[in-house]
Nucleic acid binder design. Structure first.
Lengths: 136, 136
DNA sequence: ATCTCTATTTACGTTAACGTCAACGTAAGC
DNA sequence: GCTTACGTTGACGTTAACGTAAATAGAGAT
């Protein structure tokens, strides 16, 4: 048996998997958002890097900047800190939650309006098809 | 009695109300996202402009680009078009809905993880406070 | 040995969404 | 008539998040 779960990923493979370019991954490393291992000059991405990347991209899809995404991801690594640290962390978490909840409200409102327009639109279409026969 | 509801807004007032700068509003006009009335060179924003702005900013909070936000807002103005137009519009609406629903899933996932971390964090804090007494 | 892939670094280019002057007009209040 | 407040049009500056091109290196296949 081999040494369990220490698979690494080449930069190209990871890029393909997540639908980003290699430039993106290098950029993320340059900015410190990812820290792939280096053998020589070549990068090797671990499972942890892969998870981090997934979370970063999820943050991006929510409209966060990379820095904000990274901050959230870092929150996940509770460093088992002191009492004060824990309280700071909890505060940050609450803040993030508030922000995300507001976003959820915005999202719901937008979906509502889309639904309304969709409804009107469907009605109008139905009227047209009823009145003027079944034009193809 | 006066002529009902034709109130307009000065650029500064509108900026203050929405927490943006006047530069932003001028930029939005320059890009065609807003079309305030002009008396001389001075801009006067109508209620419609105000609503549009609100929707644009909501789109931004969802992480959309201004162009995307504007596109969505434009969808709201169903132009009572032809059968073909209506179908195109319905398709676009469905597409937007899909995108927003994916975002909702991302949001939920993120909130879940935040919750989990919050939980752990709270537990850790509780343990600390139980074991080492009630340090201020 | 040469070709082909994938990788690397360096560095300049690009787009969106404004910020930040500068220089000026205008209406209100004193 | 002067100040103060708010408006205007350029026009250049800035930041984030990569794109793109050039020159180079190592590893495998033929």
């Amino acid at each position: 048996m081999s040494k369990a779960n220490d698979a690494t990923y080449a930069i190209g493979d990871l890029a393909d998997e997540f639908g980003v370019t290699t430039r993106t991954l290098r950029f993320y490393e340059e900015k410190g958002f990812l820290r792939p291992e280096r053998r020589g000059r070549v990068r090797y991405f671990s499972q942890a890097d892969r998870v981090r990347l997934r979370l970063l991209l999820r943050g991006k899809r929510l409209g966060l900047s990379l820095e904000e995404s990274a901050e959230i991801v870092d929150l996940y690594q509770t460093p088992e800190g002191s009492k004060r640290q824990l309280k700071v962390l909890l505060a940050k978490l609450a803040e993030r939650r508030e922000q995300l909840l507001e976003q959820a409200r915005d999202l719901e409102a937008t979906l509502d309006e889309l639904g309304r327009v969709e409804q009107q639109c469907g009605d109008a279409l139905a009227r047209l098809e009823t009145h003027s026969g079944t034009a193809r």
